[in-house]
Amino acid sequence: MEYLPKGCLREYLQKNQERLDHKRLLLYAWQICKGMEYLGSQRYVHRDLASRNILVENETHVKIGDFGLAKLLPQDKEYYVVREPGQSPVFWYAPESLSDNVFSRESDVWSFGVVLYELFTYSNRSQSPSEEFLRMMGRDKPMPIICHLLELLKNDRRLPAPPGCPAEVHSLMLSCWAFSQSKRPKFSELGPKLEALRDSRSKVRG
């Protein structure tokens, strides 16, 4: 993997919040979306899409990184079942990934919705997906975290709209977090919507 000196997107957002407007965030989101669309077209599932795994080349260009959990889909299936043990970034996971270890392009779309959330919170640690969900479930629960998280998602509890986030962007996040896989948009559908939102920001400023 190539070395990109500006590091990961999570830290870049935290350090440069003052000069990253919504138009720039939407550019990053569009680039990530297009990268994921390409991966999907090659039958790859990333399985660990998060701002910590997006690398910043420069102020206007980000790239998807960390393919340690990526898997090629079997020719006869549109999903992949994880059988090996190991730690998982559960707060970025879709319900079917939490309950059945099933990963697909649709579960990557769910994770992309969480990346959108990270972008528009500038990866603020106090608003991170893990912090928000732990607040929702309470920190004194005896059951495993995954059980509580799955219960929250089944009850339609989702990450809140980031402060100042445009309603259209939050609506896209919510569409990515549809409980049913079939109701989530495809990356090929999200890309044009993100581009249109970014163009509309340009016209407002113009």
Score class of each variant (00 low, 15 high):
141 K>T: 00
63 K>N: 06
91 F>L: 04
167 A>Q: 13
190 L>Q: 10
92 W>M: 00
116 L>F: 09
52 R>W: 01
110 W>H: 04
87 Q>T: 14
101 N>K: 07
66 D>L: 05
82 V>P: 03
34 K>E: 15
97 S>T: 01
128 S>T: 10
178 A>Q: 15
80 Y>F: 11
190 L>V: 14
96 E>V: 00
67 F>Y: 11
165 C>D: 03
84 E>Q: 10
89 P>E: 02
126 S>F: 08
58 N>R: 07
39 L>W: 08
64 I>W: 03
46 H>N: 11
98 L>H: 00
83 R>C: 02
167 A>K: 13
129 P>W: 06
115 V>W: 06
141 K>N: 03
46 H>W: 10
177 W>R: 03
12 Y>A: 02
73 L>T: 01
164 G>T: 08
139 R>F: 00
197 L>F: 04
10 R>P: 01
180 S>Y: 05
90 V>H: 05
72 L>S: 07
127 Q>E: 14
86 G>D: 03
12 Y>Q: 04
180 S>R: 07
123 S>A: 15
137 M>R: 10
119 L>P: 13
78 E>R: 05
173 M>W: 03
103 F>Y: 15
47 R>M: 08
167 A>T: 12
149 L>H: 10
131 E>S: 14
40 G>K: 03
86 G>K: 06
47 R>L: 11
129 P>G: 09
50 A>D: 02
32 I>F: 12
169 V>D: 09
125 R>K: 14
184 R>S: 02
9 L>P: 06
32 I>N: 08
143 M>C: 00
95 P>D: 03
55 L>D: 01
162 P>V: 07
15 K>F: 08
132 E>D: 00
162 P>F: 04
62 V>L: 05
28 Y>G: 10
131 E>A: 14
163 P>N: 09
76 D>K: 11
12 Y>C: 06
29 A>N: 09
130 S>K: 15
160 P>V: 11
204 V>Y: 06
120 F>R: 02
196 A>V: 12
129 P>K: 10
169 V>T: 13
52 R>M: 02
28 Y>P: 11
43 R>C: 04
140 D>F: 05
54 I>V: 15
147 C>A: 11
70 A>T: 15
117 Y>H: 12
116 L>V: 13
65 G>A: 14
85 P>S: 06
93 Y>Q: 13
109 V>N: 02
91 F>V: 00
80 Y>L: 00
170 H>A: 00
47 R>I: 04
85 P>W: 05
173 M>S: 06
17 Q>N: 08
68 G>S: 09
117 Y>V: 07
168 E>R: 13
11 E>R: 12
150 L>N: 10
40 G>C: 08
145 I>R: 12
158 R>S: 07
195 E>R: 11
122 Y>L: 09
36 M>W: 00
149 L>W: 10
109 V>C: 05
60 T>D: 14
114 V>I: 15
179 F>N: 07
54 I>N: 00
109 V>Y: 02
195 E>H: 12
169 V>L: 11
191 G>I: 04
117 Y>W: 10
178 A>S: 13
